[in-house]
């Protein structure tokens, strides 16, 4: 980390590139000049970056939640009914291989350039991986648990709630993790192209103002959010399941 920062600073100071293309991270090149750190701090204080982050996260969470719910429903149907697996299951594999940003032109035509279009590609970006993971989880619920529950009198939605869902939790968590990453990619691409506020829009603004310090600040923000989600949310979920189930560490 320190090495990378140092190298960056040195390159920035050599005047190989103009300052706007290669802004320094910590120490300004000329007195009162810009640094990534100062832009980041100013942006956070003025609320510009903070507001954009909030906006992006709001959209992201909404799209992600819809995708997770859809994914669970589709996944269940695929696991439960053979004919759904043969039709939708096959289709999902194909859809999964299409990068979600490809949907954007279609989304703009359908919903106009705005929130809905962005939400649409976020949802569509995360739904398919969630579906695939959920259906794998549901399909791999050991028969032993199902039989045990059924002989104890469980059936229908009770069986789904108390056995099928909990038994597929490990698969569902890894699905959430991947779906979250896909949703991030989708929202960045969507906001870059679609405008209308958010971190992606700010990135585009940074590009047009030629202020790479802003662009780099946003990249740092994205990196921090990603790390926090992965370490604090998903990894914790995985660990707590592993501990409860007595698998792994």
């Amino acid at each position: 980390m320190i090495v990378i920062v140092t190298i960056w600073e040195i390159i920035s100071k050599t005047n190989l590139f103009p300052t706007f293309m290669f802004p320094p991270l910590l120490i300004p090149n000329d007195p009162g000049g810009v640094t990534v750190l100062s832009t980041l701090v100013n942006g956070l204080i003025s609320g510009q970056i903070l507001g954009a982050t909030g906006m992006t996260l709001g959209r992201l969470l909404l799209g992600f939640s819809i995708a997770v719910i859809l994914g669970l429903i589709f996944g269940y149907l695929i696991a439960r009914y053979k004919w759904v697996d043969d039709t939708l299951g096959f289709f999902v594999t194909a859809l999964q291989s299409i990068p979600s940003i490809v949907w954007f032109p279609l989304a703009i035509v359908w919903f106009g350039l705005g929130n809905v279009a962005i939400l649409f590609i976020v949802t569509i970006g995360a739904t398919w991986t969630m579906t695939v993971n959920a259906s794998t989880g549901f399909k791999n619920v050991p028969n032993l648990y199902l039989n045990a529950a059924r002989t104890l009198g469980s059936s229908g939605t009770h069986l789904v709630r108390t056995v099928i869902l909990p038994a597929s939790v490990p698969h569902i968590i890894s699905g959430l993790r991947v779906a979250w990453a896909f949703a991030w990619r989708a929202i960045m691409a969507g906001e870059l192209l679609g405008g209308n506020g958010g971190l992606g829009y700010l990135l585009d603004m940074g590009r047009s103002l030629q202020s790479m310090d802003l662009v780099l600040s946003i990249m740092i923000v994205i990196g921090i959010i990603g790390t926090i989600m992965d370490n604090q949310v998903f990894l914790r979920m995985e660990r707590s399941v592993a501990r409860k189930w007595g698998v792994g560490t």
Binding site: L144, Y145, N147, A148, A149, T162, V163, P166, A167, V169, V241, K244, W245, G246
Partner: peptide, 10 residues
Amino acid sequence: VFQQGGLFPW
């Protein structure tokens, strides 16, 4: 009562 018990690990 199954051979592997069939207790729910969760």
